[in-house]
């Protein structure tokens, strides 16, 4: 391994880091909001809503992420919805992560003791008040591990955006080695950057877990 090439490659690949993080942040935000909606739909007593939620989960967890990305990139323009590669990727990533986050969120809500709801009912609190002040804080604590685990996976999966021509880190790495045919150095740099990012997320997860443990 030629360390000079490693040092040269780093800034070139790092330029893509902001795109990577951007993809991650947008998809995480949209995916979480959507996931929350799906989770609530799944828990709702209205049959059509819970059926839709089940369908959503089955569909977006049963199909590979890459198919979703290709759908957003190749198929949507056919129906007149022309998205830039970046937004097509965000769309695909958001739908995909929403399906998994919906499960994480739902497990957090149902895991909280049913007795809490009954206790609050007995005290005459309204359902939404109960949700907000009693159930949600406890649910969040249970949700944190699967949620951040999904988020870490999402970060890594942004690498697939390279296949729909988004200039994030992986694409820039491919450009380097298809130009100068030096493979190991840029791929090594790419791996190290991802490793650093995912490790930061893991540490962040432990901090959040500890914070929520003390709070309640």
């Amino acid at each position: 391994m030629d360390w000079d090439v490693v040092v040269e490659s780093f800034p070139l690949i790092w330029k893509g880091a902001s795109k990577t993080v951007s993809l991650f942040a947008w998809s995480l935000a949209a995916g979480t909001v959507l996931g929350l909606a799906v989770a609530l739909m799944k828990l709702s007593s209205a049959k059509p809503l819970s059926w839709f939620a089940t369908l959503f989960s089955w569909l977006f967890r049963g199909v590979p992420l890459l198919i979703l990305l290709f759908y957003a990139f190749f198929a949507l323009p056919e129906v007149g919805w022309l998205l830039s590669p970046f937004w097509a990727a965000v769309l695909g990533l958001s739908l995909w992560t929403a399906a998994y986050q919906a499960e994480a969120i739902r497990s957090g809500i149902i895991a909280v003791d049913h007795g809490q709801t009954e206790g609050s009912d007995a005290l005459g609190m309204t359902r939404s008040h109960t949700m907000r002040r009693i159930i949600i804080p406890q649910s969040i604590r249970i949700m944190v591990p699967p949620f951040t685990s999904n988020a870490t996976t999402l970060l890594k999966q942004t690498s697939l955006a390279t296949l729909v021509t988004v200039p994030e880190m992986t694409l820039l790495t491919q450009r380097i080695f298809s130009n100068n045919f030096k493979f190991i150095e840029p791929i090594f740099v790419l791996a190290m950057i991802y490793l650093a990012m995912t490790t930061v997320l893991i540490i962040g997860q432990q901090i959040v877990e500890r914070a929520f443990r003390l709070k309640t």
Binding site: K156, Q157, S159, L160, T162, T170, T173, F177, F183, I184, I187, L190, A191, Y194, L195, T198, T199
Partner: peptide, 22 residues
């Protein structure tokens, strides 16, 4: 485990194909 869970599968594939495989 830390390494292979910390990098995307795509990067592992690149290693396998472009570096090791070659």
């Amino acid at each position: 485990v830390w390494l292979f869970r910390g990098i995307p599968v795509l990067v592992a594939l690149f290693f396998a194909f472009f570096v090791f495989g070659r």
